[in-house]
């Protein structure tokens, strides 16, 4: 296949991924709307304290994050189609994930370089990372409730990339032609994917009240967000430092307060504040979640806003 054909195939994979994510979102939403109502606070904790049976193997996957409790007062058994929809959503999400991955791979083959050299490719990759973070978490813990929200975020992200940031396949400027793009941008993409997952969970936390709901308890939501950030923070630290190393190769200084550098720093400080607030100052719940979402806002502004609104060395976005 020629480079042009490959680029075209890549574009079609993006469209396919958007459609699959949208259908998966509907399926997840059906599961959530008609599925089991979950208790509010405190019940989850009691379940977690059940002693481990003698000789029992590790609990089945999905059992520890969201323990279903028998003590929910008189909830009717959810209809069967809800569970079916949930499974269908997962399958569709995986197929969409494959389409998203194929879009990235074919794009990379078409341009013969790492396929995150401009805003379009970068956003497509972040959506892929966010969906990956969700699906990989789902393998071990039941976080199906997140599905609909992650899907809608990814579908919107891909749509935004295709409509606003679209850049025809082509070579990058010499400054971006370096092996550092594989290290620095990949780390930023993975960290951003995880932090997006945390951000979506944080928003759900604020939406959910303390009473019974179809969403998991607030404590569980908080835990999911916290774990994602705990994984993402060292990665983000690494991404920023790898960026500094690259800047040292390309621009003659490792740190020069370019707008992108400033906002990476702000984002880093904001997530550091979140971790401190949680670990040492003992902030919980709403307060910690709001700090997390402020940090997430900084991340989004850094990823997208800085490239569009502010002129700087990172203005590789190719956005007209």
């Amino acid at each position: 296949m020629s480079a042009e054909q490959l680029a075209e195939v890549s574009d079609q994979f993006v469209v396919a991924a958007v459609l699959l994510y949208v259908v998966a979102m509907v399926a997840f939403a059906t599961d959530l709307a008609f599925g089991r109502v979950r208790p509010g606070r405190a019940v989850a904790k009691a379940a977690a304290r059940q002693p481990v049976a003698v000789g029992a193997a590790a609990p089945p996957p999905g059992a520890d994050v969201l323990p279903e409790s028998a003590s929910v007062p008189a909830t009717p058994e959810p209809p069967r189609f809800a569970a079916v929809a949930g499974t269908a959503g997962l399958v569709l999400a995986w197929v969409g994930w494959v389409a998203n991955l194929s879009a990235i791979v074919t794009r990379g083959l078409a341009v013969d370089r790492w396929p995150w050299g401009n805003m379009y490719e970068f956003v497509v990759a972040i959506c892929f990372a966010a969906v990956s973070a969700f699906l990989i978490t789902q393998v071990r813990h039941d976080v199906r409730f997140l599905g609909g929200f992650v899907m809608v975020t990814a579908a919107l992200g891909l749509g935004l990339a295709s409509k606003v940031f679209y850049t025809a396949a082509g070579p990058v400027v010499p400054a971006l032609d370096s092996y550092w793009i594989a290290i620095h941008v990949s780390a930023a993409i993975i960290a951003s994917g995880l932090l997006t997952l945390a951000g979506v969970t944080g928003i759900l936390y604020l939406v959910r009240g303390d009473g019974p709901s179809r969403l998991p308890s607030r404590a569980d939501l908080e835990r999911v967000a916290h774990r994602a950030i705990v994984f993402a923070f060292p990665l983000w630290t690494f991404a920023v430092i790898a960026g500094a190393l690259w800047a040292d190769r390309a621009w003659g200084r490792y740190w020069g307060w370019d707008p992108k550098e400033v906002w990476s720093f702000i984002t880093w400080v904001a997530y550091a504040a979140y971790l401190h607030a949680k670990a040492t100052a003992g902030w919980k719940g709403r307060a910690a979640t709001i700090v997390q979402l402020v940090a997430f806002g900084c991340l989004l502004f850094n990823l997208i806003g800085v490239n569009i609104f502010i002129d700087g060395l990172h203005s590789y976005a190719d956005v007209d």
């Binding site: 707008p259 400033v262 550091a272 800085v306």
Partner: peptide, 21 residues
Amino acid sequence: SMKTALILLFLLALGSVPGSL
């Protein structure tokens, strides 16, 4: 104290913003 450190962290982030604008 941790509270002061947190406030300083926020100030550091906030103080950087004009540096980009």
